[in-house]
């Protein structure tokens, strides 16, 4: 329950780095992130229940494992370069601050994602058209991503705020901070790119009814080709 209270505080925008006494606890937030991402994974896998050859329960299990894995692996892949460039080019944030930034933004992302879970599950149960379900999920992920990035931006603005010496939590030069956050803004873009491709590597999340169930599909194509293909299919040009 404490983890959910922490999540609630993050969602309400009350967890600020600079405020005295407010510390963002990594452990509980990470746990609740995994739980929320897994919940959405189950909602995605619901599509497998209506396969022509009978319900495929394993798709829900796969979703529950893969969606948290998607976020954690993307973070793992992009984090080292982010940290190195942050140290080289600025804003020279400490590792702990960085981790908290990432996990806080991820909390917002997974919360929005899981809140859309019931809608995704409902459409997955009632829709046979695979391309529609794929694009609906891409749209929900994109929307959640926008909110996650918005949260990250707010945290950065908060970090850049000039503050009195006694409440200084992060060593930062306020005058230069706006420009120096460029590294983090670039990382947001890289995170979205890598996240998209990671979701392709970990596919299937939904499970095409034309293919047998598989935990992972063979190496082939890319996320962007996949989305384009789904869009073409839905528009009748596939």
């Amino acid at each position: 329950m404490q983890a959910f209270r922490e999540l609630d505080r993050v969602l309400r925008g009350e967890a600020r780095f600079g405020d005295l006494g407010v510390v963002i606890p990594l452990g509980p937030l990470l746990r609740v992130n995994v739980l929320l991402a897994a919940t959405y994974g189950v909602c995605m896998g619901v599509y497998g229940l209506l396969w022509p050859d009978g319900p495929e329960w394993r798709q829900m299990v796969a979703g529950a494992v893969k969606v948290p894995a998607l976020f954690l692996l993307t973070l793992l892949v992009t984090f080292p370069s982010l940290y190195v460039f942050n140290t080289l080019l600025g804003p020279r944030l400490q590792l702990g601050v960085f981790l908290r930034l990432g996990v806080t933004a991820l909390s917002v992302l997974t919360a929005v994602l899981s809140a859309f879970g019931p809608i995704t599950a409902f459409f997955s149960v009632t829709t046979a058209n695979y391309a529609f379900v794929v694009l609906l999920n891409v749209a929900v992920f994109a929307l959640a991503g926008v909110f996650g990035l918005g949260c990250l931006r707010n945290l950065l603005v908060e970090l850049a705020r000039p503050r009195a010496a006694d409440e200084d939590f992060v060593v930062l030069e306020p005058a230069k901070s706006g420009r120096k956050f460029g590294v983090i803004y670039a990382w947001m873009f890289v995170f979205a790119l890598v996240g998209g491709q990671m979701s392709w590597l970990l596919r299937p999340f939904i499970g095409s009814p034309d293919l047998p169930f598989a935990w992972l599909r063979p190496r082939d194509g890319s996320f962007f080709e996949g989305v384009l293909h789904a869009a073409k299919l839905l528009l009748g040009a596939g």
């Binding site: 969602l11 309400r12 925008g13 929005v112 809140a115 019931p118 409902f122 909110f147």
Partner: peptide, 18 residues
């Protein structure tokens, strides 16, 4: 209403309108 309420709640919260 039931299906749309969770996202409505989270959107309100995230936008600071809780």
């Amino acid at each position: 209403t039931g299906l749309a309420l969770p996202s409505f709640f989270v959107l309100n919260t995230v936008l600071g309108l809780r």
